[in-house]
Design a protein around this nucleic acid. Structure first.
Lengths: 313, 313
DNA sequence: ACCGGTTGTGGAACCGGTTGCATGAGCCTG
DNA sequence: CAGGCTCATGCAACCGGTTCCACAACCGGT
C-alpha cells in the first residue's frame, strides 16, 4: 500500500509538497503538480482516510438517523444522501433510532464522536429531543421542521390538501383521512391542510387514527372506512393505503377511491385515482447538500428550511 | 474533547498505561485500571476513532453492498448487520451497487481502502465478478453461494419446493412460478427446487419470467397467469406477488392462490395461502458474525457457508 | 544595485492513539 | 543472599497524512 512518502520520493519532492500538489494544486507549481500526480497515478496511491481524518480533525463520515428501514419512505432518502456523500468523498453511515425516547439520545451522542454531522429523520419525537440530538454536531433535519434548525422537507401537507380538493371536484362528498403514527409532525401538518381544504370545499371529513405506517394497519382500517360511508380515502402512508385497497378489493368493494403514490397508481394502471409523487432521493440529496454547506462554512449561518414541492396527479 | 493524554494525566499515569488500562485491562494492575477508568468516566473520554484506526491499521468500518434499497428484502439484512456491527463497536457503511457490470468493481475497489471487510449481496453478477469484488478485503457473501467463499444464505429454494408440494397436497394441479430477475442465483436455485417438487408430485408447472422484483412486474404477469389457467402461483419476490394479487383482485379473480410472505398473509388475514418467512435480520446478523470471525482470525480458515432454514406455513 | 513582495518548497511539529522495548520493583528459588 | 522471573509501567517510535513557518529564488519597481 503506497503512502504519500512513496509518492513524494518518486516525484522527487517532499511529503509537504506532495500533499499540497494533490490537495491544493493552487499552492504548488503546475509542473510539480503534474509530476506528483503522475507519481500517484503510477503507484496507485489512495490516501489513508484515517490519517487524513486525524490530521484534519474531521471524520469524513456523515450519519443518517432513521427510525426504521422497513418503511419505503426512508430508503430513497438514504440512497440520495449516499450518492451525494460519495460525490464529495464522504461516507454515509446508518443509524436506526426512532428518537422517540430519551434513551436513544445516548446512542446518538455516542455516534456524534465518530461523524462530522447528522442527517436526522425524527418523525415523532418532541422538538426538545430533536434539538438535543442536533446539539452534538451540525445537523440537517429531514421531513420535519423545528424552529431554529436547518431542514429539508417534502411539502406533502400542501399536496394532501390538493388531494382533498381533487376528490371534491370529482364529486366526492364524504372523505376519510387515515392518520399516521401518534405524534407525527407530518401528520399534524397534513391534518391541518386537509381540514382547511375540506372546509373550504364543503366536504364531510372523517379523521381516523392514529395508525402505524404499515400494510397491516391499512387492512385494519377497513371497518372504519366502510362505516364512514366514504367514497374517497386519503391515507397517511402508501403502505396503509395499499393495505386498505387490498382489503376493500378482497371484500368486493370497488367504489371507494384511495389516493396513493404515483408509481403505485401507474403500475396498477388505475384511472381517476389521485396520487402524490414524493421524490425521496431528491430529499436526501438536498439535505446532504445543506449539510455540506453547514460543514463548509466557518461561521454560523442562519438556519434555512428547504421545502420541496410535491406534485399530485 | 478530552484525549487519552488528559485521562492519563488525571489518573497520574502515562499515555501508554492509560491505553492499556482501557484496551487490555489484563496487562495493567487492577488498581490502575480502576483509576484510569474512573478518570475516563469523569472526563467523558471517547477514543478518537481516526487515531485508533491509524495506529492499528484498521478502519473499524464494514461496508454492506446492496443492489438497491427499494427492495424490502435487503433492508432487514442491513438492519441486522448494523445491530451486530454496533455491538462490536464497528460502523456500517452502505454502498448501493448491483455488481452486474464490471465498471462497478471500481467503486468497490475504491471503497476497499476505507473498510475492513465487505458484506456482499450480489444477486445477479457472474461468479467471476463476485470473486473479484471479494478479492480486495475479507468478504462474506449474502444470499448466494460461490465456490470458495464464505457466505450466509436463506435456504429459500427448499422452502419454495415445499410451497409447491403444499399446493399439490391441497389439490392444485396447475401451478405457475414467476421467475425473478435474469441471472439471479436464487432464482436458479428455486427453479430447480420447484421443478423437482412439481415432478415428484405430478403437477403441471408453468415457468414465467424473467421479471424484476417489483410491484409493477407482478401486475404485468397477470395475463400470463390467467392464460396458464393456474390455480396456484409461486412468485419469486413478495413485491411481484403483491402486484399480481392486486391485479387479480381488481379483475375480480378470486380463485387463484398466490403464495407470499408470512407477514403479508397474516396482516391480510388470508387462509389457505401458504407463505414463507425469511428472517432477513437474522441473515444480516449471521453474515456479520461470520465476517467478524474472518477479521479476527490470524490465519486463513476454509470458507464456510451457513444456510438458514426458511420455514413455511 | 537594492528592496519589498510574491511564489514554491522543505523541515518539522502535530493529530491521538498503540505497541515494542527497556527499566525497575518485588518475589521466588536454589 | 544472589540470580532469575514476572509484572507493571514509562519512554519513544510509529501510523500517514496536513499545515505552520522559515527560507530561498525570483519578480518588478525605484
Amino acid at each position: 500500500m503506497p503512502t504519500l512518502a512513496d509518492v513524494a520520493a518518486l516525484a522527487g519532492v517532499s511529503k509537504a509538497t506532495a500533499s499540497r500538489a494533490l490537495g491544493r494544486p493552487d499552492l504548488a507549481a503546475p509542473e510539480t503538480v503534474a509530476r506528483v500526480r503522475a507519481a500517484a497515478e503510477q503507484l496507485g496511491f489512495v490516501p489513508n482516510r484515517a490519517a487524513t481524518q486525524l490530521a484534519r480533525g474531521r471524520t469524513g463520515v456523515v450519519a443518517v438517523v432513521v427510525p426504521t428501514l422497513d418503511n419505503t419512505f426512508f430508503t430513497p432518502i438514504i440512497g440520495g444522501a449516499q450518492a451525494r456523500a460519495a460525490d464529495s468523498g464522504m461516507q454515509l453511515t446508518i443509524a436506526v433510532h426512532s428518537l422517540e425516547h430519551a434513551a436513544q439520545l445516548a446512542a446518538v451522542e455516542q455516534l456524534a464522536h465518530q461523524v462530522d454531522g447528522f442527517l436526522l429523520t425524527a418523525p415523532r419525537g418532541s422538538d426538545e429531543i430533536v434539538r438535543a440530538a442536533a446539539s452534538f454536531k451540525p445537523t440537517v433535519l429531514i421531513d420535519r421542521e423545528v424552529e431554529g434548525m436547518t431542514s429539508a422537507v417534502a411539502d406533502t401537507a400542501t399536496a394532501f390538501g390538493a388531494l382533498v380538493t381533487w376528490f371534491v371536484e370529482k364529486g366526492h362528498e364524504r372523505i376519510v383521512y387515515i392518520g399516521g403514527p401518534a405524534g407525527s409532525w407530518q401528520d399534524r401538518q397534513r391534518q391541518a391542510a386537509i381540514r382547511a381544504a375540506a372546509e373550504s370545499s364543503g366536504a364531510t371529513l372523517t379523521m381516523l387514527g392514529p395508525y402505524p405506517s404499515t400494510f397491516a394497519a391499512g387492512v385494519e382500517t377497513t371497518e372504519a372506512v366502510v362505516a364512514a360511508r366514504a367514497t374517497a380515502v386519503v391515507p397517511y402512508a402508501t403502505s396503509i393505503g395499499l393495505g386498505l385497497m387490498f382489503a376493500l378489493l378482497s371484500r368486493g368493494i370497488r367504489d371507494v377511491v384511495v389516493s396513493s403514490e404515483r408509481v403505485i397508481v401507474e403500475s396498477l394502471g388505475l384511472s381517476d385515482v389521485p396520487s402524490i409523487d414524493v421524490d425521496g432521493e431528491k430529499l436526501g440529496e438536498v439535505a446532504m447538500d445543506q449539510l455540506m454547506t453547514l460543514l463548509g462554512e466557518r461561521r454560523e449561518q442562519p438556519p434555512t428550511s428547504r421545502r420541496l414541492t410535491v406534485p399530485i396527479s
